[in-house]
Computed example of a mutant assay.
Amino acid sequence: MQEHDLSFVRAEMVVAQAAPKSEAGTGAWLRKNLFSSVGDSVLTILGLLLVAYLLPPFLEWAFVNAQWTGTDRTFCATAAQGGIQPDGWSGACWAFVQAKFGQFMFGRYPIDQRWRPILVAVMFVLLLVPLLIPKAPRKGLNAVLFFFVFPIFAFVLLTGGWFGLTHVETPLWGGLLVTLVLSFVGIAISLPLGIVLALGRRSEMPVVKLVCVIFIETVRGIPLVTVLFMASVMLPLFLPAGVTFDKLLRALIGVTLFAAAYMAEVVRGGLQAIPKGQYEGAESLGLGYWQKMVLVILPQALKLVIPGIVNTFIGMFKDTSLVYIISMFDLLGVVRQNFSDATWASPQTPISGLVFAALVFWLFCFGMSRYSMFMERRLDTGHR
């Protein structure tokens, strides 16, 4: 028997070596992401120059020269304007935001009852966070509590009139409370309604398809301002005498239907992206229409259009500020309403309030955007 020479075969694994210095570390990251080409280098330098030009004045306005405490406009006005600040002073008036913070959050909700929206917010976070964590246990129970039990709990607690709670009319609601109510309800209802509309538009039944097409194209063809105006002002004119709906409910219906029309087109794009073989494979297994859609098609389609879905959510969250035109005051509406308070009338009050509102909107929108990117990476198993 011929013997084989095994002297060249390694008997043990080589110890892992560090990556080359040119491929790891801060320098490698900068070279790959910021200076990989001449064009990237030029854009990076221009961006850094722009940041260096804009950031120091903003930091000086927002922090260095800012007025953090105070009881009236004199703390945020110069001496020439009847205030305590020196002439030429220019800084943020965070004292205004601090004094009006309660209104920015809750509107005219009674002060002694504000523990109710605070409790609703705490319950919202406690139920939402486990739902967003993929490895959290008992997802089914969590979903039932969040989508079915929590809305009833929130409605009873916020409106009152039951269990000894003082009734608080919705015209007293305002600020971030209204923004979150409109956006949460709109998101929770517009997605399933958009899915139904997308399936209806692709239906082979002419009547169903025609109704869905007319609804989608009609709503998408008019601005949200018109939808809100119709829901708030025109709708009561077509109702029988003595029959009316709460203004907040009308705004909820208008925002939800508007978002559902756009959501339907996003979902339809995902349905069209699924290969025909997936439909045929599901049918070959003997699955019915709804089984095929729920178990095979929709999970793949929704995964493909996560960016479009979240983009619609973000747009709807920001569009809630349009309820200001129907005399409802969300966060931005309450901020603008307080500009007319003579106690805080100063040149720095409006910009400080608007910057605060912009920061709050940005935090929520950025959070939704980052979570959608996380879900895209987690679900992108079939396209890597």
Rank of each mutant, 00 (worst) to 15 (best):
S7I: 04
A16T: 14
A19Y: 06
E23P: 04
G27H: 05
L34E: 05
D40H: 13
S41N: 08
L46P: 05
L48C: 15
P57E: 03
W61N: 03
R73T: 07
Q81N: 06
G83L: 07
G88K: 05
W89M: 01
G91Y: 07
D112H: 15
Q113N: 12
R116P: 01
L127R: 03
P134I: 09
P134T: 11
K139L: 07
K139Q: 13
G140K: 10
V144R: 03
L145M: 13
F147W: 12
P151I: 01
T159I: 13
W173F: 15
L177C: 09
V178D: 05
G186I: 01
S190M: 09
V196T: 13
P206V: 04
K209T: 11
V211I: 14
E217Q: 14
R220D: 10
R220M: 12
M230W: 14
M230D: 04
M234I: 08
V243R: 06
Y262D: 00
Y262C: 02
L271H: 04
A273Q: 02
I274K: 06
Y279W: 15
Y279E: 09
P299T: 07
G308Q: 03
D319C: 07
S321A: 10
S327E: 07
D330V: 08
F339R: 03
S340F: 14
S340G: 10
A342P: 12
F361E: 03
R377L: 04
L379W: 11
